[in-house]
Nucleic acid binder design. Structure first.
Lengths: 209, 209, 209, 209
DNA sequence: CATGAATGAGTATTCATTCAT
DNA sequence: GATGAATGAATACTCATTCAT
């Protein structure tokens, strides 16, 4: 049901902090932020309640740390692709595949995160402080920004027509996420990546506009 | 701030039930499901706490009723467009415009709804019973199904290439929602509708595949 | 062990709020502020936990309300004595008797209150907000101020020698409280009042200075 | 802010035990017993948490040890004055001065101590065991007993009128403490000592009774 | 001896729901 | 029908104490 993002590490050498993060990953994914209880997390992590608060200031910070630790390697990979010397269209397809992979792995947690962070300035919506939520949003913007950069590159070299790259990159992103959340992704991610890229690049119309 | 979906009804003949639904609309939109309190709803509805439970079994059913009463007129409109005698491509653009209109109006509440209903079979995620959540999902599928039908029609008459209509309609839907949630919709909805349709129909590539 | 400050009211017509206050009186007196638990208060008040929070915002405000409701009638009595047309020396003795009576009745709770409120600006000493504590202290100053006023009156009419009335009134007050807290008060309060007045008025030396 | 009761000892030869006691002095004074945390004490003492429990059985015993180590030299001084060959009235003034000095130095901690120990037999008031609290009270009685002894001496030699020395010594003590706690003590302690003695010896009335 | 990671019992507070009036 | 006082299950967080290193 849930992925362990560092499954390589042997069970017995994991420290408490890691155990808690892994348990939190599972519980937040299953229950969402509000309905996830610290009690359930510690039961799964097999630690005492106080231990959680030795490593994290509170539930919110535990959640944020989780998101951050999962995001960072992913973001690094994205950046690497953006910096590649491949043709932009190839890079777009690679990015789509990476996104499919990441969101497939972390679908549940990411849905939760997006919900908690959503809204711009909605007071009282989430228990999260606005400052904290802004940090999540910045992360989100940068992620989509990777697609944006490659699109601009593609326009620059004439591979695609000039367009509002902010909108298109968001559109591309949302389609990827929708496919994942609705479980319409082919086990061979490259297949789905090709399909998505195909629609965005060439459209579905029989005749060119 | 909030839309009244039946503003035509005069204030003084609104019954308690309607007052509660309108207050619930506002509070659920602002706070999300979990953080919305019955106390806040009745304060806004200017009614007693017991009254809520005269009309609705519980908070959950209040929320569902709200969604249903807002969805139904919208779905009727969609069906009407599908049944139109217009060319499929025109109908697609009309559908996109209707979606943009509806989600723009009800963005906050819909975000909340999607979050609560999300997940297929995640036990304990929401306080909602699985049976209840299935009702929401069915509604969701039917909504997207409208796009699907028109796409199939378009394929049948040769306007668009054969494609996986379930995937494409979901993609189209997700792009619409993303634009709305990220506030990238032009005040003139038709402009944004054209853009979205343009990308899906003709792609962004300079050369046909 | 504890006094009921409105014992006259029949049990069955007491409302929940009053029941809670009376239980709080007993528990705060026995346990002090920190060690008094809401659970114990509701057990004694025979109410549900939520009921406490219907009437009082939180534990602190419950405590403050308690103090206020007990203080006010007492302060009114003190003011009445100050305004009397009796000779100052007589009024002083009457005040002493009233203090003995009040503190004997409410010894434990008052000790708790004084401890929580103590300190001028000691950050973090009490969980009480400084603003709140200032309200208690103002109440305290006014109470002692009654003695002060009568002392000034006595000086004005030549009954006692000029002296620092602020210091003497505080001294008188502290002796009263000490007698009560150490359980050295005679059942006939007037006896102890006379003794205390005697020392302050005429001293214990065999010869005038 | 805080007094070190053995400042003479060089910093570098102070052992852990002493460091902990000094930190505890500061923290208990600032926060009171309940709100003082072992964490804060060890942070200030620059030591490990376990070390505290090497030297003291628990928080309670740490507190008691603190009180004892501070009290003993003070009590020795008091006893010395009692044993002096001075006239009783002079000794009383000296005692008052010593008390003013001691409580001024240790005002905050003593307030905390008195609160924790207060009450005779109040079950559950403090976390302290009744046996422990009795030790504090015995200490308290002996301290006041010094005044009592001198008063009795003064009566014996005819300097003061026969009176209930237990009550008067407690009264004298409480006035001293009140002056200190309310910050009404003159920087020159002898001035305040004279005033207090003056009131107790000769009263404030213009005419002898 | 010194340490600090791990622990879990203890507590204030929230809020959906009920039911007597 | 309308009301709102009463309820108590549910939950994040604190902090004294232990014990393996």
């Amino acid at each position: 049901m849930s992925s362990r993002w560092e499954a390589g590490i042997a069970e017995d050498c994991k420290n408490k902090r890691q155990q808690i993060l892994e348990a939190a990953y599972i519980v937040f994914s299953r229950k969402g932020y509000h309905r996830a209880t610290v009690d359930e997390i510690i039961a799964l992590a097999d630690t005492g309640k106080g231990t959680v608060y030795n490593y994290f200031n509170n539930k919110e910070q535990l959640f944020y740390t989780l998101i951050k630790e999962i995001s960072e390697p992913f973001e690094a990979k994205l950046e690497a692709v953006v910096a590649d010397k491949e043709p932009p269209v190839v890079k777009i397809k690679t990015l789509i595949r990476l996104f499919l992979e990441f969101y497939t792995k972390n679908a549940d947690l990411w849905r939760v995160m997006m919900h908690e962070v959503r809204g711009f300035g909605s007071e009282g919506y989430s228990r999260f402080k606005e400052e904290q939520r802004e940090k999540y949003r910045e992360r989100f913007r940068e992620t989509i920004g990777c697609i944006d950069k490659v699109l601009q590159e593609a326009i620059a070299c004439g591979d695609i027509k000039p367009c509002d790259t902010a909108q298109v990159s968001l559109g591309l992103f949302s389609v990827i996420v929708a496919m994942v959340f609705q479980k319409l992704v082919d086990p061979d991610l490259a297949v789905t990546a090709e399909k998505i890229a195909g629609v965005f690049l060439y459209g579905i119309a029989r005749q060119q506009a």
